[in-house]
């Protein structure tokens, strides 16, 4: 199936953006997003032969990306690491590329906003509002019921509205 139709490089080109974006929003740090992207595509490369095509390739890759991001988030919490927003100095741009800066600047406002959500809600709202997945696709990626997706989105939006009002 999927793996034989196109080369691994084509799959990477077609899906690396969505994986990187999702990881960046989830983890709020460029280095972590790069690590997750690497982990995801190495896993895809390993398992491509056995991919049976029960889910779409996109859903399958999203699922791996969500799992890798949550794993790294868990590891980071265990290590009591400080998120990049706290230590990030916008003036210190010598060591980072322009792409990193643009990504981080745009990310910081959204990251601040999303900080109030729990991981489940954050994944749901990102997959819906940022990636444009349907409720059914989100349910498929997260292995949950469509009604659960609906309730998580409702709660996430309520929390975000409250947070935004508090911030303004």
């Amino acid at each position: 199936m999927g793996g034989e139709d196109c080369s691994f490089e084509d799959i990477y080109r077609g899906h690396s953006g969505m994986v990187y974006r999702l990881a960046l929003r989830m983890l709020s740090r460029v280095e972590d997003a790069e690590e997750v992207t690497q982990q995801v595509f190495l896993a895809v490369h390993r398992s491509l032969k056995t991919f049976e095509g029960k889910a779409s390739l996109k859903t399958w890759i999203y699922r791996i990306a969500v799992n890798c991001s949550l794993n790294l988030l868990k590891k980071r919490k265990n290590r009591f690491e400080v998120p990049w927003m706290e230590g990030f100095d916008p003036a210190d741009t010598k060591s980072v590329t322009e792409q990193k800066i643009a990504a981080e600047e745009g990310q910081s406002k959204v990251a601040d906003l999303l900080e109030c959500l729990n991981e489940d809600q954050k994944v749901c709202i990102l997959l819906r509002a940022q990636e444009g997945l349907t409720y059914e696709e989100i349910a498929d990626v997260l292995h949950i019921n469509v009604n659960t997706v609906r309730s998580r989105l409702s709660r996430a939006r309520m929390t975000l509205i409250a947070q935004k009002k508090g911030l303004l």
Binding site: G17, L24, T97, K100, G106, Q130
Partner: peptide, 11 residues
Amino acid sequence: IKSVPVIEQAP
């Protein structure tokens, strides 16, 4: 949430 610059590809 959508306003963040779209990243088409990973670095």
